[in-house]
């Protein structure tokens, strides 16, 4: 656990989060959410929570994104905010 690395990833995480909620194209937002989850996995691996990271990697970056993308394909990818 190196706190500088930790700090850096956290910054990335925050950037991803802000970007995900501010991008108007929903598909991009969802992909960025996937990136957000990926950075989270990284963070947790770094913290030693490998099981959690593994789960987050398989669930959030794969299944969750897939679900979001599927739903967006079925609805609309435009957003006003």
């Amino acid at each position: 656990m190196i706190w500088q690395l930790d700090f850096l990833i956290l910054i990335f995480v925050i950037i991803c989060a802000v970007a995900a909620i501010n991008i108007r194209d929903l598909l991009s937002a969802v992909i960025i959410l996937g990136a957000f989850s990926f950075f989270m996995c990284l963070l947790w691996t770094e913290m030693g929570a490998i099981d959690v990271a593994f789960t987050e990697a398989s669930v959030a970056t794969a299944i969750s994104t897939l679900l979001f993308v599927g739903a967006i394909y079925k609805t609309t990818r435009r957003s006003k905010d």
Binding site: D51, A53, F54, T55, S58, V59, A62, I63
Partner: peptide
């Protein structure tokens, strides 16, 4: 090792 039913199940889903 890290893993278990949940993670494995999700990979099977994948």
């Amino acid at each position: 090792s890290p893993g278990g039913g949940f993670q494995g199940g999700v990979i099977l889903t994948a």
